[in-house]
């Protein structure tokens, strides 16, 4: 298991490097930058600014310095728009917020989705099952940007129960709506994935053996079917993480939570390349880590992969 982990870790290093290099060139080759405004700056001023941000160096030198700074000091350079802030500052400020509700979403979507899916499969072809499937599909077509306004409309504007936005140190009234808005759609898809996986397992030969051994239904579900049912769910968690990360952009803006997504969009609108680059790389690294974790979870669930 340890050897497998190390091997997978080593395998993801090139992925991260290629990611950094590719995004770096994409940004640098882009026409226009934060200093291209309507009113062209005098050439000497522009040269001055470019020298300050190291933009006058040859491209490979810029890339090399950039890489070294990230690896040695976790330093993504200064923001091009906020004059006195480093990208690392922005990240260290926004990331904890995003991670808090992101992880919560992850947990809620998985726990609720898996429970509903298992329940539906156990009551296959009854009205519970049909309801779960239809609701699952319905939930899937309710993405964050639909759920957000609807939730605010109901709970803030009509009922006045929950604050319409803000973070306030992550107290639970401020967390409820972002988490529901983000997780609804994935609860739907996880329910459906779990259900069909569970149905397949329930039809397997080894469940038949377990029945032939006279085991109780409860022990069949918990001991014999749960782990294999979770396999496809676990491989779906990687994509879910990506969706949650993407969705955080919406949450941060719509609920003004102050997470990373807010900076991402404002950087996109102002062409603040160093912030964009920094956040993209960070998200990439996080995704690689999550994929690694899901692979390990997969190996834990399936002894055939365990090495």
């Amino acid at each position: 298991m340890l050897a497998y982990t190390i091997r997978r870790l080593a395998g993801s290093i090139p992925t991260i490097l290629v990611l950094i290099v590719a995004s770096f060139f994409l940004m640098r080759l882009a026409p226009g930058g934060p200093f291209t405004s309507e009113r062209p700056l005098p050439p000497e001023v522009l040269a001055n600014i470019e020298a300050r941000y190291g933009l006058d160096q040859p491209l490979w030198k810029q890339l090399w310095d950039y890489l070294l700074n990230i690896i040695l000091r976790f330093d993504f350079g200064p923001s091009l728009v906020f004059k006195d802030r480093d990208v690392s500052d922005i990240i260290s400020q926004g990331l904890p917020i995003t991670l808090t509700y992101g992880l919560l979403t992850f947990v809620v979507a998985t726990v609720v989705g898996v429970s509903l899916g298992v329940y539906a499969a156990m009551h296959h072809n009854t009205w519970v099952d049909y309801l779960a499937v239809s609701l699952g599909i319905f939930a899937q077509s309710l993405p964050n940007f639909i759920m957000g306004p609807v939730l605010i409309l109901i709970f803030t504007l009509w009922l006045g129960w929950l604050p319409g936005g803000g973070w306030n140190g992550g107290q639970w009234p401020y967390l409820i709506m972002p988490v529901i808005a983000l997780s609804t759609s994935y609860i739907g898809s996880i329910t459906r994935i779990t259900r069909s996986a569970m149905l397949e397992v329930l039809n397997s030969n080894y469940v038949r053996t377990a029945r032939a051994k006279g085991l109780s239904e409860r022990s069949i579900i918990w001991r014999h079917t749960l782990k294999p049912t979770l396999l496809p769910v676990v491989s779906y968690l990687g994509p879910v993480f990506v969706y949650v990360v993407t969705g955080s952009v919406f949450v941060d803006i719509y609920f003004s939570t102050g997470g990373l997504g807010q900076y991402f969009v404002s950087a996109a609108l102002t062409r603040d390349y160093s912030v964009l680059l920094g956040i993209t790389i960070l998200y990439g690294v996080l995704t690689v880590i999550v994929n690694l974790l899901t692979d390990l979870a997969y190996a834990w669930l399936d002894p055939k992969i365990r090495l």
């Binding site: 397997s204 030969n205 080894y206 038949r208 053996t209 377990a210 029945r211 032939a212 051994k213 006279g214 085991l215 001991r223 014999h224 782990k227 294999p228 669930l301 399936d302 002894p303 055939k304």
Partner: peptide, 21 residues
């Protein structure tokens, strides 16, 4: 009764045993 008074064995022993136990 099952597993106690009546035991059963099946054709394909690989799929008939639970893979993760």
């Amino acid at each position: 009764l099952r597993g106690n008074d009546v035991g059963m064995i099946f054709q394909d022993p690989l799929t008939a045993l639970t893979p993760h136990l």
